[in-house]
C-alpha cells in the first residue's frame, strides 16, 4: 500500500482498517489534508494511485463513517500540525518574490512528498495559479508528487561514478531487488533514484541513503548495507 511516513500511519484509519478500501473510509489522512475539510471529500481519491490500481473503476463514495480516531477536543492531528507549519512558512515568506520554491521545499521535507491538497493550499495562499505551481514542481527533480519509501537510495550517476561502475550498482538493484530508478520496494522501505553527482567524486562509486553517504560501494556489499537500515 502507500508508503506514508510512520507518524502518519499511526494516526490514519486507512492503516488501521487495512481490510477496507481506503477511499471508502471517512477521515483518512489524505482526505484530512484537504484544507478545512472534515475528511469526507473524495476529490483526491479519483487521482490517487491506490484507487487507480485497486479500485477497478467502482464509484467512490464514503461507506465507513466514524472510523476516524477519537481525538480529544482542541488537539490537532498530525495532518493539522503539518498544515499549520506550512501556513507559518507561507506567512513568513509571502511577501518575498520567489517564495514558492522554498515553501515547496519545506513542505516536501515535512511530509516526504507533495500531496495534491498541499499543493492546492500553497497555490491558493501564495496566489499563484495551480498550473504554474505544477509547472515548477514538474521542472525540478527534487519535488515529488508521489510518496517515497522510508529510505531513499540515491545512486550517483555522475561522470566519475559512471566511469567507476555506478551502472553496476543499478544492475545489482534490478537483479537483487527488482528495483529500477523511480520505484519503491513493495514493503515501502526503500525507494531507488539516480542522482547526478553528489560531489564526492574522489570516492566513486557513491550512493546516498537518506543523509548517509556511502563510498566506493561494491555491488556485493549492497545487501549488507541495506539490512543495516531498520
Amino acid at each position: 500500500m502507500f508508503c506514508c511516513p510512520e507518524t502518519i500511519r499511526d494516526e490514519c484509519p486507512a492503516f488501521k482498517y487495512r481490510n477496507l478500501p481506503c477511499w471508502q473510509i471517512e477521515g483518512t489522512y489524505c482526505k484530512l489534508l484537504d484544507y478545512g475539510q472534515r475528511g469526507d471529500s473524495t476529490d483526491i481519491c479519483w487521482v490517487c494511485q491506490v484507487y487507480k490500481r485497486y479500485g477497478n473503476g467502482e464509484p467512490i463514495e464514503i461507506k465507513h463513517f466514524g472510523k476516524g480516531f477519537n481525538r480529544p477536543e482542541g488537539a490537532i492531528s498530525y495532518a493539522g500540525r503539518i498544515f499549520k507549519e506550512i501556513q507559518e512558512v507561507i506567512d513568513r515568506t509571502r511577501g518575498q518574490a520567489g517564495a514558492i520554491i522554498p515553501v515547496l521545499q519545506h513542505a516536501q521535507r515535512l511530509i516526504g512528498y507533495l500531496p495534491a491538497p498541499v499543493i492546492k493550499t500553497i497555490s491558493r495562499d501564495l496566489k499563484i495559479s495551480l498550473s504554474e505551481v505544477y509547472g515548477i514542481i514538474s521542472f525540478y527533480h527534487f519535488f515529488s508528487t508521489v510518496p517515497k519509501g522510508k529510505y531513499v537510495i540515491q545512486v550517483c550517476m555522475g561522470t566519475s561514478c559512471y566511469v567507476k561502475g555506478g551502472q553496476r550498482l543499478l544492475d545489482a538493484f534490478k537483479k537483487g531487488w527488482g528495483l529500477e530508478p523511480g520505484m519503491t520496494t513493495a514493503d515501502g522501505k526503500f525507494s531507488l533514484e539516480t542522482v547526478r553527482c553528489l560531489g564526492c567524486c574522489g570516492l566513486s562509486p557513491v550512493m546516498a541513503i537518506g543523509s548517509d553517504v556511502h563510498r566506493k560501494v561494491k555491488a556485493s556489499e549492497l545487501r549488507d548495507i541495506l539490512t543495516s537500515y531498520p
Binding site: 518574490a97 520567489g98 517564495a99 514558492i100 520554491i101 522554498p102 515547496l104 521545499q105 499563484i128 509547472g135 515548477i136 521542472f139 525540478y140 527533480h141 527534487f142 519535488f143 547526478r196
Partner: peptide, 25 residues
C-alpha cells in the same frame, strides 16, 4: 541563501535568476 531543487540548467545564469524569482528554470 537560496537552495536549488535539483535542476542542472539552473547553473546557467539566466535560469538561475528565474529560479530565484520562483519560476521554472
Amino acid at each position: 541563501i537560496f537552495p536549488g531543487a535539483g535542476a542542472f540548467v539552473c547553473g546557467e545564469e539566466t535560469a538561475l535568476l528565474q529560479s530565484i524569482e520562483g519560476r521554472r528554470g
